Amino acid sequence: MRKGPIWLVILVALAEFSTQQQVGLWVSGLGKVRAVPDIAVVDVGVEAQATTVSQAMDMARTAMNQVMAALSGHGVASQDIQTRYFNISPVRRWDERRNISEVIGYRVTNSVTAKIRNIKDAQRVGRIIDAVAEAGGDLTRIGSLRFTIEDPKPFQAQARAKAIQDALAKAQQMTEAAGVELGKLIYITEVGTGMLTPRPIYFKEVTPAPPEEPTPFSPGEEEITVSVRMVFDIA
């Protein structure tokens, strides 16, 4: 069987290769919107230690019931409270004389995640945290407190529109600088969305000393970002 000239084979290969490459004008756009959080999310619970499981359970149960009552009494709905962690574990101590680890008691940990709404009242979060700390006493443990936006979709839509405008402006600038005309849009995709939030506030232990003024907290702002990629023909 006769084969074609080698130069023809090379040309065909180059043509196939070129069709696989990116063609047209590719640009990316970034849109940002800042918004004030509308909910606070707090991880709160109790930790009790005693010589027996039964004693530790009783202590934790009593304290947790008081914590739940404090949350409910300050308007936190039951559907906004979810058990996050429950654990019963032995407490051990190393006996140097006998060279063994011995059980000296038991620890019970019970924690929930609670959503605090209506935080336009700047002192509402502080009042709830203080009430929880007082209700649980020395057994109270607060893991973290963070502010967020429950439904970011409207802000994402605004950021998306800004991202598209950013990409269009880049495309126009590039074609003008290159001395060509911007053709029709042939491809567009959303690369990703994000929400930059302040770092959560972590607590190791809470000392229940009711202040005259609630513990101060500030929700600050969150930054919602959307990235897009667009491809245009070059006329």
Rank of each mutant, 00 (worst) to 15 (best):
V76N: 05
V191Y: 02
R93K: 13
A209F: 11
N87Y: 07
V103R: 05
S78K: 13
A178K: 12
I10K: 07
M59C: 04
K120P: 03
D43T: 13
V53A: 05
N110A: 08
I201F: 02
V125S: 04
P90E: 11
G137W: 14
Q165V: 00
A209P: 02
I142M: 13
A122E: 13
E212N: 12
R97Q: 07
G31F: 01
I149G: 01
I186V: 11
W94M: 13
S54Y: 11
A159E: 04
V33N: 03
I224L: 14
G179Q: 03
D38K: 01
A50N: 14
T62D: 11
I188Q: 14
P5N: 04
G220I: 04
Q123Y: 06
V44H: 02
V46W: 04
V23N: 15
P154W: 01
G24L: 05
E221G: 02
Q156V: 15
Y106V: 01
S72N: 10
G29R: 02
Q66K: 12
Q156M: 15
R98T: 13
P208M: 10
A159Q: 02
Q165R: 07
R124L: 02
W26F: 12
I6F: 00
T83A: 15
R92Y: 15
R117Y: 04
K184Y: 08
A77E: 14
F147S: 02
F17C: 14
V9R: 11
T113K: 13
I224A: 13
P152N: 03
T193Q: 11
V9C: 07
S227C: 12
M174I: 14
P210Q: 11
V228M: 11
L30D: 09
K115M: 03
E221M: 12
P154Y: 00
G137E: 07
V108H: 12
D166G: 06
T215D: 03
Q79N: 14
R2T: 07
N99C: 00
G75V: 01
V9H: 07
D166R: 08
G73V: 11
T197Y: 00
R146P: 00
Q79H: 15
D166S: 10
V103G: 12
V9M: 09
Q123T: 10
R107T: 07
S111E: 05
M1N: 04
G183I: 00
V112I: 15
F232P: 00
Q55H: 07
D38T: 09
S72H: 10
Q82W: 06
V12S: 02
Y202N: 11
E205C: 05
N99K: 15
S28L: 06
A133V: 10
G105V: 08
P152G: 01
G31H: 01
V191K: 03
R229G: 07
I188V: 05
E181D: 08
S111G: 08
I39W: 03
V27E: 02
P200I: 01
M68F: 09
R199W: 00
A56R: 03
D138I: 12
A169I: 06
L14N: 01
E205S: 15
G126T: 13
A60P: 10
I10P: 03
E181W: 04
S227W: 14
R61V: 13
Q158G: 05
R84D: 15
G137C: 08
I129G: 14
P154Q: 05
T52S: 12
T215I: 09
P208A: 09
L71D: 06
Q172Y: 08
I149P: 03
